[in-house]
Structure formats: C-alpha cells, structure tokens
Design a protein around this nucleic acid. Structure first.
Length: 213
DNA sequence: GGTTACGGT
C-alpha cells in the first residue's frame, strides 16, 4: 500500500531508548501483516491531524496536553514519596558540603504543612513568618547541583527543578535532587527568585509567596 | 527531556 513506506520511515524514527526498554517496530514483511501497518499508519495520521486541528483552533488536544505537564510544581503539602516535582520555597537553612565532597542539604519551607515531614520547628529569623509544625522539608542536593548552593542564603526564595520525594531512614518525607545527565540540567536546577528582601518587606513577601505557590 | 534517580549523615 502506498502509505506503507512512508509510515514505516516515520515509525522507525523512534528516539533511542535506554537499555532494557523494548520498542516494537511495525514493519511490512517482518512481524506484522500489511493490515497491521495500515492500521498503524491510520492511527498516526489521526493523531497528527488531531494535533494540527487542536493547534489551529486553540482548543482540544494541545490544551489538554498543556494542562497535564509531566512534572508538576507542587506545594510542600502535596509532595509524595517517589514523585517528581518542581518546587518554589524559602530557604530556612543551608548546609554546605564538607570540603568538596558528597552532598548539600537545604531546609525549605513554603508555609504549607505536610504531616509526613519530620515534626521540627526551625525559625528563619525574626523578620519572617513563624514556621509551624511539619512545614520544614529537608532537600538533599547531589553531584553537580552541590556547586549551586554556594550562592544560596537563608531567607531567599528559590525555584528548584526536578526534585523527587523520598522517605528517609526514619520514615519521614524528604526531597532529593539527584545528578542530571545533560550539561544544561546540571547547571540550571536552582533559581533564586528575588534579591534579598528588605526586612520590613519580608512579611509581605512571604504573604505573596504563599498565595502564589 | 525523562519508564529520571543511585548515594550519605
């Protein structure tokens, strides 16, 4: 059938997958019948047309896709173990790594409580909102991320990319920022959102922060 | 980007 070779070339253009990830290729004359190939080609056209239509009208599929990002930005109260997420939070403490080895730890809050967090109360300072129970989350940074903590200070608001929830040894929720493969992600996973807030504006900044996250 | 993710007090 005329569309077969076209469908074949498109279907063969799959991205390289990691070891152990199996991809079933649909090719005429191999494991699949001609009708299999036609069905695949039909579905592929249907999907492409649906995407094009959605993009043209501004409704439908493309918006649906946008509403479900692969990795959400979560509040601390919504973080769960083994789930990837991005985070906006304020720095409570910075624990830099000992002499260039290992990892760094940030204590973070966004003033939402998660009962799975360790029940400790750590104040930032007298200019910031009081942090209540289960509002401080430990976040461990590994590998190249560690170098990014040098510029971080208590009280700063930051945006963190690609964290993962984890249960620590004692059963409490914490967050991990593991090493990335791409050079890009290695250097851009921690973003300081604002310059240091003057003390008299700190409470307002915290309120704004709370309503935004 | 992602069927991405390990490790150490």
């Amino acid at each position: 059938m005329g569309t077969s070779s076209n469908a074949q070339s498109r279907l063969l253009g799959t991205a390289i997958k990691p070891p152990g990830y199996r991809v079933s290729l649909i090719r005429p004359g191999h494991d699949h019948s001609a009708s299999d190939v036609e069905v695949a080609a039909f579905l592929r056209r249907w999907w492409a047309d649906a995407l094009a239509k959605a993009a043209a009208t501004g409704t439908g599929l493309s918006n649906l896709v946008k509403e479900q990002p692969a990795r959400p930005t979560l509040k601390i109260c919504d973080i769960k173990p083994n789930v990837f997420f991005d985070l906006c939070a304020q720095i409570v403490r910075v624990y830099s790594p000992a002499a260039g080895s290992g990892q760094a730890v940030l204590l973070l809050t966004d003033y939402t409580a998660n009962q799975s967090l360790k029940d400790e109360i750590v104040a930032i300072d007298e200019h910031h909102l009081p942090i209540q129970r289960h509002m401080v989350m430990s976040c461990t940074l590994w590998d190249s991320h560690v170098s990014q903590v040098a510029d971080l200070r208590t009280g700063q608001h930051i945006y963190l990319r690609n964290l993962r929830g984890k249960v620590d040894r004692d059963g409490f929720l914490e967050a991990m920022m593991h090493g990335e493969r791409s050079d890009d992600a290695k250097k851009t996973s921690v973003f300081v959102l604002d310059a240091a807030e003057p003390a008299d504006r700190a409470t307002a900044a915290n309120d704004r922060f709370k309503s935004n996250v």
